[in-house]
Design a protein around this nucleic acid. Structure first.
Lengths: 234, 234
DNA sequence: GGGCAGTTTCTTGTCGACAAGAAAAATACA
DNA sequence: TGTATTTTTCTTGTCGACAAGAAACTGCCC
């Protein structure tokens, strides 16, 4: 188990243990530092973070609740797999939630939401300019998550964040194998979407979100088609 | 804290502790045996279930992950509130997910799914006939959850189950105050929907689900309007 | 009588240890 | 040598105890 994040030295505040472990592990999973199938060892984590197994366990229970790790009773725990055989369910959910959350954002956003959204878009543009795939993937998820927040529907926010999490893993899986150009096109599309939200044009936001989502789906499908041809091992 | 479910006497199997506590607590919350705001005391639960605080804690972490309880750090834990001020977000999500899951069920269901769905519908009809509100509410959620399962999209299944959970609490809140007739109409609408699924008519399933969902929304809104007039205290 | 500081109490967060299940390893046997 | 069985090991699930934070309470001073 390759761990990226050595937890700091000094004593932690009470109550922060499980939270920090949760967040660090979560990021390592989503960035594929811990790829699917990686074994998760409680005692190893406890030693690594210099705390007892109890807060580790709490973090793992939470991650299991989000479907990011799988726990075999009385046996082992490991990072959950990505279900490539049913990618279409992922695409269906992605397109629908892109549309719904963007439309709701156009209807219900407040001024502060727009600032947040634009900040995320700015980070996304910077990552694309720097050809930093990891940062771009995370910024993309953060941007759309911010749009969903502006829509103010907690149910949609919750699903969408799960979808975006899986999207982070899937995109990372591709971009770490192929050093493609990062798509400037998405930056422009984001700008259009944000403009539609700011104009409170719900129908336009819906249409743009749909086009944007379907293009992302199409790109992922092309990528995986290529992967199938050239890289069977994955 | 009124507890409905005294956990049995004999020694439990290893690994079942947290699971049983989770399920029993969950049902008590959804049936409003533990209404919103009820304090959750770990030691009390530990005594009640005759186990240590550790498995109790795991169950609570899971429930918190589903948003059914709220934990104030270093302080208390209580059953989460129902957000009546933003019921429209609940309605939006309910209608959309009714439609999507029913449509997908029409497309992707397998023979075994139909048996499961019909079994739930049968339980629902029985509950309506018996004027058993609690059983009807649970059966309704189970029926639609089964339909969602047949649609085979784990993202939609997950949100929808959360929506249905909240729906159980909201409906229970109403039906426990007003001893209304239970609606035979919903039994018939369910039958139509099931027929459309069986016929693999996705468009019809979508239309029927939408009508069904909107009628449920309308009824809940009427109920709460009455409640506002007659029963301010809630 | 009211506000404030110190103390008590109460709940949660963390810890180290032990026990149960299951896999892996070692042993016995054909 | 291959297979069944026992033993060992390894990981998880559970436990009881302790410590930290926060609220509630107490007594004090004005």
């Amino acid at each position: 188990m390759a761990m990226q994040t050595p937890a700091p030295s000094t004593e932690r505040k009470r109550g922060s243990g499980a939270k920090t472990v949760y967040e660090l592990l979560r990021n390592d999973i989503l960035d594929l530092v811990l790829p699917p199938g990686s074994p998760i060892d409680e005692v190893q984590l406890a030693e690594h973070f210099k705390m007892s197994r109890t807060p580790i366990r709490e973090a793992l229970v939470r991650l299991a609740g989000e479907g990011l790790i799988d726990t075999l009773p009385n046996r082992s725990t490991m990072v959950s797999n990505i279900d490539f055989l049913n990618l279409h369910t992922f695409f269906d959910a992605l397109v629908l939630m892109y549309r719904v959350t963007t439309k709701l954002a156009a209807q219900y956003h407040r001024p502060a939401d727009l600032l947040e959204i634009k900040a995320r878009q700015s980070e996304f543009a910077t990552a694309v300019a720097n050809q930093d795939a990891l940062a771009m993937i995370a910024a993309n998820a953060a941007l759309h998550s911010a749009i969903a927040d502006a829509g103010r529907n907690p149910y949609f926010v919750a699903v969408f964040n799960r979808i975006l999490d899986d999207g982070r893993r899937i995109l990372r899986l591709y971009y770490q194998s192929y050093g493609d150009r990062l798509p400037q096109q998405f930056v422009d599309e984001h700008e259009e979407i944000i403009a539609a939200i700011a104009a409170r044009d719900a129908d336009l936001a819906d249409r743009l979100a749909r086009i944007h989502a379907e293009q992302i789906v199409e790109q992922i499908q092309r990528l995986f088609a290529r992967k199938d041809r050239f890289d069977i091992s994955l």
